[in-house]
């Protein structure tokens, strides 16, 4: 079972990134749950969501100690770094996070999400870069193929025009990590 937290500024798309992962994993037969932070928090402050992906029924969908944490901004790194389970994974957005994570008992991946998004022509696809990186680091969660299908299912139709860019960003982030 993986307990994943996506966190960042409101507007960075962390809630939808979590939802896309949940859909992709669900389509591969996994049990999933997704809980967003909601309300006033979502407007300009930090937003996060908790996704659980499991082979068995999910008891609690609330994530107190994530096994994987994806942070897109520095306040989120400050908030969640210490909570990650020992042996867990941290993926952080090095484009805008200036400090280095401190933990030595977890695997840490640095990825310039904003840069990858921007040079593919979008300022809004940093979340997709994070997803691409996550699929590389934890291929058990979902395949790139399922994620592409999730983009169709989980994104409203009027935004489907952004999916070619979303896919490019995801794929570049996927190959960025060695």
């Amino acid at each position: 079972m993986e307990k994943i937290i996506f966190a960042g500024f409101g507007g960075q798309g962390v809630i939808s990134a979590g939802k896309l992962l949940a859909i992709a994993s669900m389509r591969e037969g996994k049990e999933v749950s997704h809980i967003p932070s909601y309300g006033a928090e979502m407007r300009g402050g930090t937003a996060n969501c908790a996704v659980v992906v499991s082979d068995d029924e999910i008891a609690s969908a609330i994530v107190h100690k994530p096994t994987i944490c994806i942070v897109l901004n520095e306040p989120s790194l400050d908030k969640f770094e210490s909570l990650i389970e020992s042996g867990g994974i941290l993926i952080y957005n090095s484009s805008i996070i200036n400090r280095k994570p401190q933990r030595e008992d977890i695997k840490i991946y640095s990825i310039p999400c904003n840069d990858i998004s921007e040079h593919n022509g979008s300022i809004r696809a940093a979340n997709m870069a994070a997803l691409g990186a996550l699929l590389k680091v934890k291929p058990e969660l979902a395949t790139m193929e399922s994620m592409k299908m999730a983009l169709v299912e989980g994104i409203s139709e009027r935004n489907h025009k952004f999916n070619p860019t979303n896919i490019k960003v995801m794929e570049e982030a996927y190959s960025y990590l060695k």
Partner: peptide, 10 residues
Amino acid sequence: DGFLGQMSEP
């Protein structure tokens, strides 16, 4: 409750 209302599951 709010958690159940806001959470997504299959």
